[in-house]
Every structure is written in C-alpha cells, then in structure tokens.
C-alpha cells in the first residue's frame, strides 16, 4: 500500500525560516525518517537532518513531529491518517543550526559538569563484585541513548532560555542519580545536584518521562528518588536539628 503523504517541514537557519509543504510517496511500514530521506533524494537534496542507526539505538534523529518531541526513525507513518498533514520541525529548546538540525552543545556541557564515577581507591580491576539487584537501578538509566528529547521537552529550559545556566536537565540529573545508586561509587553528589545542577527547578511534571524513547521512568525512578535523597540531607528537620546539636556532618 502506497499513498501520497502531505508534509510540512521547517527549513531555515538562525536567520529565519519557514514551514515548507511537500507531497511525498509513503509506503507500507515506513517511518518519518524514510520520508525525510525520500525528500532528500528527490526534492530537497540539501535538507539537513541528523541520523545514524535508523533503529532507535543512537539517539541522533531527534526532532518534533506534529509538535511532539520524537525520534524520526521510530515514528511510524501508520500512526497518522493518510490525509493528515504531518509537520516536522527541529527541536525547539535548542539553538537552530539548519533545517532539522539543532545545536545540542548545551547537553555536552552539562554532561561534563557531573562529577565522574569515583571508584574506591584500593579496588583493582577484576576485583569488582556487584550484585545484580544493586546494579539494576543504575542499569535502567544507562539505557539512555542521549537523544536529548527529555531535555528538549522539559519546560524548565524549553520555556526559559535563561534557566540553562542553572539547570542540567533530566538527562543529567538522572546521570547523578545513576552514580548515587552505583554500588561502588564513593562520592556524594546530593549537594551539587541541588546547588549546581538545579534539581529544585524540576517540578516533577513528568514530560521527560513521557517522551523518553527508551521508556526510562526518569521522574519516578531518578528525579524523585534524588529529591528524596536531597531532602534527607538538606531539608530533614530531624537531621538538621541533629547536625546543629551534635555538629555532625559537613
């Protein structure tokens, strides 16, 4: 089964741009990325788009389809009616480069600021022993393919450019949670999570979880547990009082 699909694709760069209309052939079983490739091969050879694996594994092809952040290679055309106009735009939380390609350097900068895995000093390679139950929480977060769709959809930065300075976004708050739950990590990132990475900006409205193509329960399993850990350290009246009275902790 094959039909002519109606597409509107944003084309342009930082100087401006517009939604352009295209009529393209659509075949059975295809995904939006197939259509973009067909556009490149037949109508718009210089249409810029990022992609690599075309199998939902690398997280390169992030964009927005009908206003929703999605992986182009995992958005099947069967999701839409045949007469529906499908709008494809770049991610709207990041600066535009060209067409569907955005500048995602914000994410790489934030990645660099999370204190790396800190193993015990005296443990030699090959001597690491970890139980499956102890690694599986962090393993869920390590499924992340860094598509940055969660970063794109999070209203904290999507709707407030200035918050990018103080907020690392769900992906990297989750990275902190991953390390905090790592059975052999020795560092304590609770304070930096709150002070430097802006955990407090998150109002747990769960859009990150909604768009995550890996179905990671970012909010329930990473952000809220992190908030609880921070609460335990910073906002627990009993702990606070105890620290005051006995001058414990730092």
């Amino acid at each position: 089964m094959s039909y002519k699909g109606q597409f509107r694709v944003w084309r342009g760069d930082s100087d401006g741009g517009s939604l352009e209309d295209f009529e393209v052939e659509v075949n059975e079983g295809e995904v939006v990325l197939d259509i973009i490739h067909r556009l490149q091969a037949t109508q718009a050879p210089d249409l810029a788009v990022r992609w690599n694996c075309k199998a939902g594994k690398c997280g390169s092809c992030s964009a927005e389809v009908n206003g929703r952040p999605r992986l182009l290679c995992m958005t099947r055309m069967s999701l839409f009616d045949t007469d529906e106009v499908i709008t494809v735009t770049p991610m709207r939380a990041f600066s535009i480069v060209r067409d569907l390609v955005t500048d995602v350097s914000y994410n790489y900068e934030k990645a660099r600021e999370v204190q790396a895995f800190t193993p015990p000093k005296d443990l030699a390679p090959g001597e690491y022993r970890m139980q499956q139950v102890d690694v599986q929480r962090s393993q869920e977060f390590r499924k992340c393919i860094e598509c940055f769709l969660c970063q794109d959809t999070c209203h904290v930065v999507r709707d407030h450019e200035e918050n990018k300075l103080n907020f690392s976004g769900p992906r990297f708050l989750m990275r902190i949670a991953e390390l905090e739950m790592h059975p052999l990590d020795t560092a304590d990132r609770r304070d930096t999570a709150q002070d430097d990475h802006g955990l407090g900006y998150c109002n747990i409205t769960k859009c990150c979880t909604e768009v995550c193509p890996e179905n990671i329960k970012i909010t329930d399993n990473a952000l809220i547990p992190m908030k609880e850990r921070v609460a335990g350290r910073r906002y627990d009246p009993v702990v606070w009082l105890g620290n005051k009275l006995f001058k414990r902790g730092k």
Partner: peptide, 16 residues
C-alpha cells in the same frame, strides 16, 4: 575489567 573501573555496569553472575 578496566571498563568497570570507568563505571561500566555489566550484567552480573550470582556471585557478583
């Protein structure tokens, strides 16, 4: 094994 010192989390056996 070196990867584990970088933070990799492979699936585990019963004895860890």
């Amino acid at each position: 094994w070196e990867l584990e010192t970088y933070g990799a989390l492979f699936d585990r056996t019963e004895d860890g």
